[in-house]
Write a protein that binds this DNA or RNA. Structure first.
Lengths: 338, 338
DNA sequence: CTGTTAGCGCTTTCAC
DNA sequence: GTGAAAGCGCTAACAG
């Protein structure tokens, strides 16, 4: 086991002091160092195979250059992963690393990421909402904790009540509105809206958005079907709605998976889409594009959500300012199902 | 800005020494401490809001308790994310955190994760192959580097030549074999195999596995279609193969997305699946289950891949031993398309 | 412009 | 069983 090469070794070998080495390696400005010295030190560092000890550095600077990204357990959901992509792209540029955290509580009732922050393992937190997140009060409580302890933190897609924490949300109202609007412009006058029966801000906004578009139009009738969520198997629900198809010419479906399933069932029931019924989904990822027919969706700005969240967090860490809160619009992606 | 609470503060307040505090908080065995003292210290720590400084600890112990997971850029691929799930479940139990790394090279030609290891930010590395990873020599070179510097490292799904590094692979041969075998048992005698024309171990194994099953059977004819990869748009290729359909009664498709697209096109061309042609895919994730008809797949053991990789890495860090290399079998998941 | 030095907060050996 | 003290490798304030 051989000793680690430290900045001391580099300094000695190069015939300068440790401070000089530190200045050069960190590119500290406001210190002028002759190009010759600089070159020599860099060369020696390379030759000796010197590597910074990040813990020693962190100890001095009180910065770990890591950001915690919190997910509710399931890293597998495509929603999570798309947001992560946006976060990663921003943080890489800013020299931050991403540390995956859970929010499971420890014996003392604190979430893991709280501990990681207090231990200085991460400099800030991005919390991404999880699907079917019912318990908003719970999230609000977490936000309180962050606020109280002044922990740099951004809530992504949480739609919190608390206006003092940074938040980036998705404008589901807008999504519902433009989707319904599109159908109306296409001439549909009887529209069904299929949405899981959940008491979440997300679904509430969608219903409002869809309703708004309908209200603005003339002679358009809307039927909202609230699907009972029996362990995520909506088959029976969907079949019922499809049986009802004399009552409308188009369906808006709240979720991507639900939409795929709807198309599947339509195929099975020999219902022509979009001929007999047009279908549009208010979410859904690219994996859904090979449904038959290709699904028209209202794309959620997931990548953007990640980008904005990361930017806000980095800004906050660098100079904590006023709380930022924004809401990102959706984008229509019309393919073949309507 | 108030001073950080240190173990010194806790020690003073509790009337013991810092060493005692450390022993208690880390649950060090081989040191007997009266329950009364232990309780008092814990209580004081809680009251004062003491939190360990993880960098100071890491500096002493030379352990950062983080593992780097390397992905080639695209964290969005479902392949990556499923493996990650397995890794996460194991590492959480072992008290390790996951740090997402890229393998982009820095000015000095080292991948990011190499730097992170040398800086002691991570204790080991799990490298997950990326799809269509063509350049095996390149990967072998990375493996050399890890080996030379004795960096704890596991290569997941790389099929490296070097037997000295830990590796966990997927047995694509097995996947191809059981899929073909299933079709043969179902009575199919003319089988087509559609595979992207890539010179990778993965596709080579698949072809071998499928061929093997065909050879073992009597009177079965296999036609291999190598698809030219023009920017991942295989539509024309697939249509051609489907036009050829008098020549076979079943198709094996190498990739999940390709399979979805095949079903889509079959629908569009009014070809009945599995009536006219049966279809089975050698990969594909759960998002594909709402194709019409529901796609039969040979499931890749992605979660397991993550689990095994993480276990091997942790073992290696704790007591570096002989190189482990294993290959995980696939699993048939027969739904409606064959 | 460069060097000296004092810690950052922790663990752990060694003495008591 | 408990305590004193020696660093781990770095940065930044200060002195030269």
């Amino acid at each position: 086991m051989q000793r680690r090469i430290t900045s001391k070794d580099v300094a000695k070998e190069a015939g300068v002091s440790r401070a000089t080495v530190s200045y050069i390696l960190n590119n500290v400005k406001g210190v002028r160092i002759s190009d010759e010295t600089r070159g020599r030190v860099l060369e020696v560092a390379r030759k000796l195979g010197y590597h910074l000890d990040i813990h020693a550095q962190a100890m001095k600077t009180n910065r770990s250059m890591s950001i915690g990204v919190v997910s509710r357990r399931n890293v597998t959901e495509s929603r999570f992963v798309n947001v992560l992509g946006g976060i990663k792209d921003v943080l890489m540029k800013e020299k931050y690393n991403i540390l995956l955290c859970s929010d499971e509580l420890d014996e003392m009732g604190y979430p893991e990421y709280y501990r990681l922050y207090q231990s200085k393992k991460i400099d800030g937190i991005i919390s991404i909402s999880y699907q079917e997140q019912l318990n908003i009060e719970h999230a609000d409580k977490r936000a309180e904790l962050m606020l109280k302890e002044r922990i740099p933190c951004v809530f992504a897609d949480y739609h919190l009540k608390n206006p003092m924490v940074h938040s980036v949300d998705i404008n589901y109202y807008h999504g519902g509105y433009i989707a319904a609007r599109h159908l109306i412009e296409k001439g549909h006058r009887e529209i069904a809206f299929m949405v899981p029966n959940l008491d979440t801000e997300q679904e509430r906004q969608r219903i409002q958005g869809v309703s708004k578009a309908v209200e603005e139009a003339e002679n358009v009738k809307l039927t909202v079907y609230k699907l009972k969520n029996s362990s995520n198997d909506f088959e029976n629900n969907i079949v019922e709605v499809l049986m009802d198809r004399k009552k409308y010419s188009a369906i808006i479906v709240a979720w991507g998976l639900l939409a795929s399933q709807t198309l599947y069932l339509a195929n099975r029931m020999k219902i022509n889409v979009p001929g007999e019924i047009a279908v549009i989904s208010l979410a859904g990822d690219s994996s859904a594009i090979f449904t038959y027919p290709k699904l028209s969706t209202c794309e959620l700005p997931l990548y953007e959500l990640g980008v904005k969240s990361a930017q806000i967090l980095v800004d906050d860490i660098n100079s904590s300012g006023l709380p930022v809160s924004m809401s990102l619009p959706c984008k229509l992606n019309i393919r073949d199902s309507c």
